[in-house]
Amino acid sequence: MSADQEQAERTIRCLVAKVGLDGHDRGAHVIARAFRDAGFEVVYSGLHRAPEEVVQAAVQEDVDVLGISILSGAHNTLVPKILEGLKEYGAFEDTLVLVGGIVPDGDKEELRSLGVAEIFGPGASMDEMIDYVHEHAPERN
């Protein structure tokens, strides 16, 4: 009856996750706020999350976008574990995975080939990230 009404613009849900040992969450906070102001619903994981906790959160919260913030340099071990977990629960296909932090150019290709959609380094602008999310957030029905 009111299908068109019920199909009001879907709210984009994001998980902003801090994994591993580094305690620098200023960037994650700034991004969480910017996403909120862009009208997204942002689930913030808190610090020092293990990959399986991030997977649990991404699966249960059914987020469209998973933003992983890593400044420790451990991305090559942590990110693949998260991607594996998403696949295990059937969540990989329709989750846009972004990595924010300091990732050497040499590692970027590797992360992309594993399934990370984009990597945002220092100096990336908020607007750029928000536009990217708007453009690439997975279509769902």
Binding site: F35, A38, V43, Y44, G46
Partner: peptide, 19 residues
């Protein structure tokens, strides 16, 4: 904006990773 930061999950430390 309709946006929100949902922070309750931060406190979920005792059940982290327990599906």
């Amino acid at each position: 904006t309709g946006g929100a930061v949902l922070g309750d999950r931060i406190r979920m430390a005792s059940n982290a990773g327990d599906m």
